[in-house]
Simulated assay, not measured.
Amino acid sequence: MTEMLRAPAEVKFAEELDWLESVDDGPKPFSWRLSPRMVRLFVLGSEKSDGLDRQVEQKWFGDRSFVERAIVTLASDRGLLLIGDPGTGKSWLAELLSAAISRNSTLVVQGTAGTTEDHIKYSWNVSMVIAKGQSRDSMIPSPIMTAMEQGVIGRFEELTRSTSDVQDALISILSEKYVSIPELDDDNTVFAKPGFSIIATANSRDKGVNDLSSALKRRFNFVRIPVVTNKSSEAEIVRFRTTELLRRHAIDLDVPPNLLDILLQSFADLRTAAASATSEDDKLESALSTAEQIGVLEDAILHSQFFGDRVLKAGTLANSLVGSLARRQPEDLAILNKYWHGVVEPRSKKDGGEWTEFMDGGRQAIATLS
């Protein structure tokens, strides 16, 4: 694990998954490694009422009903589509579910404008085809086909960014549960084993890029993941991810609770302003998601570690926030400047302390970028 820049969930939480599997006496659908109850425990963490001998940490922060509906969908062997705004944890939830159910979350297809049908079915090893002809040995299965052959979960990220012909190729896989290989005379069909399913994600802001056909929609159960707006839940997510960051980089640096409060309040204020904006030009290009908050805090921590005095300060946090959110110039800078004058400045006069340093750091960052 120390040799991986980012370990997949089944590697990172391998010991915990082994333990859950050893104490799991619940019914398991198909070839699942854990029962649905244990999958939920792995994702959402354990409670005293669960009667376990050890604590299982919470890894995804959101409504329990979303996770339960996702698990039930996969147990029914239907496709699962997680849809929501950027940064709502769709991919992380998909990874955790795959790790708990199959102990393999790496069978992933990334949807882009360049994704082809070969990426979800199969392609060929050209040199082997030239030398020995087309055969199953010279075929290169896609991650989805591999998931079918193994009876595990395959993942498709950013489904709506793929073209319609690629999306259409999924319809037969989800409905018929097999892939035909017309180039071969024998052994020319790959059938999905029990336990196979697909977890796809889609960005709700990509509506209109490549809309899903009604036929494909019918093959998926939709679970909409909302933006986290509850401050306590959002704070838990940010703390969880920040702890991971500090551990990964071996950084010994505290995140003062009052600075975390400033970060959360700033994003809440900017979301409120975006909700009341009358045009797109009056909104930041950023989705103002929890993931972006984590990115802002990560940037500030690393800057403090490598270029500061290894103490996280409000000015550094403000500089990171402005630098991360000012993507369009001059539109985003104008919005941030208005926020700093209309909200941060009055709050600094009222509360003082870190808010004053936060105000000064933000003003300096805005002036530098202007």
Rank of each mutant, 00 (worst) to 15 (best):
Q134P: 14
I130K: 13
S138A: 15
T106R: 09
G133Q: 12
Q134S: 14
E95V: 03
M148Q: 01
I120K: 03
S138C: 09
L96I: 02
V109A: 05
T106E: 10
V129E: 11
S105K: 00
K121C: 10
S127P: 04
G111V: 08
S138E: 06
N125L: 10
S127K: 09
T106G: 04
V109L: 06
A147C: 12
S142M: 07
R136T: 15
N104H: 09
Q150S: 07
A131G: 06
R103Q: 01
E95G: 09
G111N: 05
L107C: 07
N104I: 04
I120R: 04
Q134R: 15
S105W: 01
I130Q: 10
G151K: 01
S102L: 01
R103K: 11
N104F: 04
L97M: 13
S102R: 00
L97A: 06
V126K: 08
D137W: 05
S127R: 07
G133M: 12
A131N: 10
A147Y: 04
I140N: 07
P141W: 14
V108P: 03
R136I: 15
G111W: 04
M145C: 13
W124P: 11
N104V: 08
V108G: 02
S98K: 04
V126C: 02
M139D: 04
L96N: 01
S142C: 09
D118F: 13
I101F: 04
N125W: 10
A99P: 00
W124T: 07
W124G: 09
M145G: 00
T116F: 07
V129S: 09
Q134H: 14
I130V: 13
L107I: 07
